[in-house]
Simulated assay, not measured.
Amino acid sequence: MNDRVTLAGQLRVWRARAQPGDAGVRSLAGARRTSGLRREELAALACVSPDYIKRLEQGRANPSGPVLRALSRALHLSEAEYVLACQLAGHACETEGLVPQRISPSVLRLIDRLGRVPIAVFDAAWTHLDHNDMWPALTGVDWMGRRGRAANMVWMTFVEDSAPVHVRHPDPRQHKASMVADLREVAARYPADLELRGMIRDLRSASTEFADLWASGCVAAHSTAHKTIDHPLVGRMELDCDTLSSHGCNVRIVVFTAEPGTESAEKLRVLSADSAENPGHIHP
């Protein structure tokens, strides 16, 4: 009998204990045929293929650092469990020096219960972690297919700039300056996060605008903002955007709302009904 602790074995245990509801996975009609998360569900949450999860659980593959962090977040591992996973994968683990990417159960409940308004959770460096069905319906982005830089709002703003839904800010320069200031503050708090340092280096190289704002030493704080959104399904909406903080897990919670009784509120209701009927649908 082999009692050796392996990453493959631990991943099987952690997947079996994971509760689909806690991970934001909706239960379909009929009884589940397996306890915990299915491989396909874990794969979708971690942005990898089901076959890759299978190979990991059979000990035929070894995850990279970013993939291990994504798996840890999807499985809601504790810090001690994440450290063990890193050790079993042969990776150095500096949890104190990395930007936290764990979401508390209370924040997950918040996402679930605010289903009629677009809400998403980002880490302190603006990397997307989770959202409700209304968020992709509003933004037109397939967030579940993104990981790392591709899921980072700062990278998307300065490098990609290709969102299918156009968002107009009252003061675009101030909005971008606030994102750069956020990144500067986070980089100072987590100097050992090599992924963050690498992204900032590449942002300065890829975007002249980012490089100029970074060099200027800009300081700007995020606050409630009024934004105009041109949506392909419902047209123009005037929405308030609030960025909230959760001190327990160091994440940013972004929520869009409309003033009650307005045309924008009705359009948001239409978008909510559409997302409920077509969960996961992305408007072109």
Rank of each mutant, 00 (worst) to 15 (best):
I253S: 07
D142A: 13
P50D: 09
I111Y: 05
A18R: 04
C249K: 06
I53A: 02
A92E: 14
R60H: 09
N2R: 15
S162L: 10
E41Y: 06
Q174E: 15
H91D: 03
G97P: 02
F122N: 15
G261E: 00
Q87A: 10
M1H: 10
H131E: 09
S216L: 00
N132M: 00
D171W: 06
L84S: 10
V83Y: 00
S162R: 14
S72T: 12
G235F: 09
Q101D: 14
C47D: 15
I103E: 00
V167I: 14
R39Y: 07
P105S: 11
I282F: 04
Q19W: 03
A188H: 00
Y52N: 11
L37I: 06
V167L: 07
Q58S: 06
A125S: 14
W214F: 01
C218E: 09
L114Q: 10
A215V: 08
A206M: 10
P172Q: 06
I253N: 00
T208P: 11
I229Q: 02
L268I: 10
A192R: 09
E185G: 10
P172Y: 03
A187D: 00
A225I: 13
R73I: 08
E195L: 05
P63S: 03
Y82W: 12
E185S: 08
S72R: 04
A61E: 02
R269K: 13
A137T: 05
V117Q: 15
F210C: 02
N278R: 11
I53H: 05
E81P: 03
A206Q: 13
G140A: 06
H169D: 02
A211S: 12
N62F: 01
M153R: 05
R109G: 11
S178R: 01
G217W: 05
N132I: 04
A181I: 10
C249P: 07
D193E: 01
K227A: 03
H283V: 14
L194G: 08
S207Y: 00
G115A: 09
E96L: 11
L37D: 09
R252W: 05
R60I: 11
N250C: 12
H175Q: 12
A181G: 02
Y82Q: 15
A273Q: 13
C93Q: 09
R38V: 00
D133E: 13
V167D: 02
S275L: 03
L28A: 15
A31R: 15
D274I: 10
E263F: 03
R184N: 08
P191K: 02
T139F: 06
L42A: 02
A70G: 09
G59W: 04
K227M: 02
R55W: 15
A215H: 12
D202S: 12
R39F: 02
V165R: 03
S78G: 14
R269T: 08
G198H: 07
A18C: 02
A187R: 10
I119G: 04
G97M: 01
G235N: 03
R109D: 15
A188E: 12
T139K: 07
E96Q: 09
P279F: 01
P136M: 08
H169M: 06
D240I: 07
L233I: 12
L68N: 03
